[in-house]
Simulated assay, not measured.
Amino acid sequence: MRATEVDWLELCRGCTRDLERILHELPTRAEREPVLGAGEGGDDTTAIDAAAEAAVVRRLAALDTDLTLVSEELGTRAFGAGGPLTVVVDPIDGSVNAKRGIPFFSLSLAVAEGSSMHDVSFGYVYDFGTREEWVAERGRGAFLDGAPLEDPGPKDTIEILSLEGTTTDAIAEYAPVMRGLARRLRVMGSLALSLCHLAAGRVDAVCCLKPARSIDIAAAQLLVRERGYAIELFEDPPFAKAPLDLVQRSRVVAAATDELCAQVAAALR
Results as ranks from 00 to 15, higher is better:
residue 1 M to Q: 08
residue 1 M to V: 07
residue 4 T to E: 11
residue 4 T to A: 12
residue 6 V to Q: 02
residue 8 W to S: 03
residue 9 L to M: 00
residue 11 L to Q: 02
residue 11 L to E: 04
residue 11 L to R: 01
residue 13 R to I: 09
residue 13 R to V: 08
residue 13 R to A: 08
residue 16 T to N: 12
residue 23 L to H: 12
residue 23 L to N: 07
residue 25 E to H: 14
residue 25 E to N: 15
residue 26 L to F: 06
residue 32 R to W: 04
residue 33 E to I: 06
residue 34 P to Q: 07
residue 36 L to C: 11
residue 36 L to E: 08
residue 37 G to M: 10
residue 40 E to H: 15
residue 44 D to K: 13
residue 45 T to E: 05
residue 48 I to L: 14
residue 51 A to K: 08
residue 51 A to N: 10
residue 55 A to R: 03
residue 58 R to L: 07
residue 58 R to T: 02
residue 60 L to V: 02
residue 62 A to H: 12
residue 63 L to P: 02
residue 70 V to T: 04
residue 71 S to M: 12
residue 72 E to R: 11
residue 72 E to Q: 08
residue 74 L to C: 07
residue 75 G to L: 02
residue 76 T to Q: 13
residue 77 R to S: 15
residue 83 G to Q: 02
residue 89 V to Y: 05
residue 91 P to Q: 07
residue 93 D to H: 05
residue 98 A to Y: 06
residue 101 G to D: 05
residue 101 G to K: 10
residue 104 F to G: 11
residue 105 F to Q: 04
residue 109 L to K: 05
residue 111 V to Y: 03
residue 113 E to H: 07
residue 113 E to L: 11
residue 114 G to V: 02
residue 114 G to F: 01
residue 115 S to R: 15
residue 117 M to F: 10
residue 117 M to L: 15
residue 118 H to G: 00
residue 118 H to L: 13
residue 119 D to Y: 04
residue 122 F to E: 03
residue 127 D to H: 08
residue 128 F to Y: 07
residue 130 T to V: 14
residue 133 E to C: 14
residue 137 E to D: 11
residue 137 E to W: 13
residue 138 R to A: 14
residue 140 R to C: 04
residue 140 R to N: 04
residue 144 L to Y: 05
residue 148 P to Q: 08
residue 150 E to K: 09
residue 150 E to T: 02
residue 157 T to W: 15
residue 158 I to F: 01
residue 159 E to M: 11
residue 161 L to N: 05
residue 163 L to A: 06
residue 166 T to Y: 09
residue 172 A to S: 14
residue 173 E to R: 14
residue 173 E to M: 13
residue 177 V to D: 08
residue 178 M to G: 04
residue 181 L to W: 04
residue 181 L to R: 09
residue 184 R to S: 10
residue 185 L to P: 05
residue 185 L to F: 11
residue 186 R to T: 06
residue 189 G to V: 00
residue 190 S to W: 05
residue 191 L to G: 15
residue 192 A to W: 07
residue 193 L to V: 10
residue 195 L to F: 10
residue 195 L to Y: 08
residue 195 L to H: 09
residue 196 C to G: 04
residue 196 C to A: 13
residue 199 A to H: 03
residue 200 A to H: 11
residue 200 A to P: 00
residue 202 R to I: 15
residue 202 R to Y: 15
residue 204 D to W: 00
residue 204 D to R: 10
residue 207 C to M: 08
residue 210 K to T: 09
residue 213 R to M: 15
residue 213 R to A: 15
residue 215 I to H: 10
residue 217 I to Y: 01
residue 223 L to C: 06
residue 230 A to H: 02
residue 230 A to N: 04
residue 230 A to L: 11
residue 231 I to V: 13
residue 231 I to H: 01
residue 232 E to N: 14
residue 234 F to R: 03
residue 234 F to E: 00
residue 241 K to F: 15
residue 243 P to R: 03
residue 243 P to V: 00
residue 252 V to K: 02
residue 255 A to N: 03
residue 255 A to W: 01
residue 256 A to P: 01
residue 259 E to T: 11
residue 259 E to N: 08
residue 261 C to K: 02
residue 261 C to I: 09
residue 262 A to C: 14
residue 263 Q to Y: 03
residue 264 V to H: 00
residue 266 A to H: 12
residue 268 L to A: 10
